[in-house]
Write a protein that binds this DNA or RNA. Structure first.
Lengths: 136, 136
DNA sequence: TTGAAACGCGTACAACTGTACGGCTAGAAT
DNA sequence: ATTCTAGCCGTACAGTTGTACGCGTTTCAA
């Protein structure tokens, strides 16, 4: 298991965009980022370089254009990031965060249904002896 | 609303501990931190100073000892932090994070029950016209 | 074919972070 | 009274982050 430096906040956004649109040139990535936040082209470029250095992305020159692709999968990055946050801000307990999200962030009616399914699924896998140990 | 600099990861841990034990001297805070992580006294001290500078804590000299107290409430800090994370890593959508937490982090049987209650409560307040708009 | 637009790449730089040392001093122990 | 201890405070320092400029070069349009 590699211990790469965590993504910075700025890099996270670029990572997310990159997962979304798939391998792309800086230009395209920048445009995608722009759709949700004002941000200089060169800044995105720097983030990408740093992401590659940290091992979160790869790139290759395609003619004159450098194409970046995500290397780490969202799942993994999200796990690492969230685990860290939960550890630091919630002392390792998951529920307070879940509670916060449900109570404070507004969940649409549609999502409530899904939520219920999720809980049901959890309940089942729990009844027949879990492989996934509660982490705290 | 003040826009204070965000807490750094290290500061977050100290903040959490400080909420937990209430106003205390650096020594006590350090000891509490030590219970979960190796960390130098002076480091904690620096974090506290910085937290005060950023507006997350206050302090006063009590004799020779400086007593630190949390200034920002957990609720608020958690909201700020989580909102930011959700924005950056999940493009502002709450559900993917909730899903991740429920599916990947292991929820104990006890918590499943609570979770169900939470969802029910949500459902109710949703039926009788919410004041809390879904945030996405 | 010549100038403009686009791009990679090196570089910059201040602010923030993680982590800690060491001097000074008030109170405790001898 | 002298020394030891603990605590505050200033300071440090390398690494990270946010943000970007500008050079050199390629390509495309005029």
């Amino acid at each position: 298991m590699v211990i790469r430096p965590a993504l910075s906040k700025g890099e996270m956004e670029v990572a997310r965009v990159l997962w979304e649109i798939g391998p792309a040139a800086v230009r395209a990535i920048h445009e995608a980022v722009l759709k949700e936040r004002e941000c200089d082209f060169a800044t995105v470029q720097t983030y990408l370089r740093r992401m590659e250095a940290k091992g979160y992305a790869t790139s290759k020159l395609e003619g004159r254009v450098r194409i970046y692709a995500a290397k780490a999968r969202p799942r993994t990055v999200i796990r690492e990031t969230v685990d860290d946050l939960v550890e630091r801000l919630f002392g390792g307990e998951t529920m307070p965060l879940v509670r916060h999200l449900i109570e404070e962030r507004g969940i649409g009616a549609k999502d409530i249904a899904e939520l219920r399914k999720l809980v049901d699924a959890l309940d089942n896998s729990d009844h027949q002896e879990d492989r996934k140990e509660p982490r705290k």
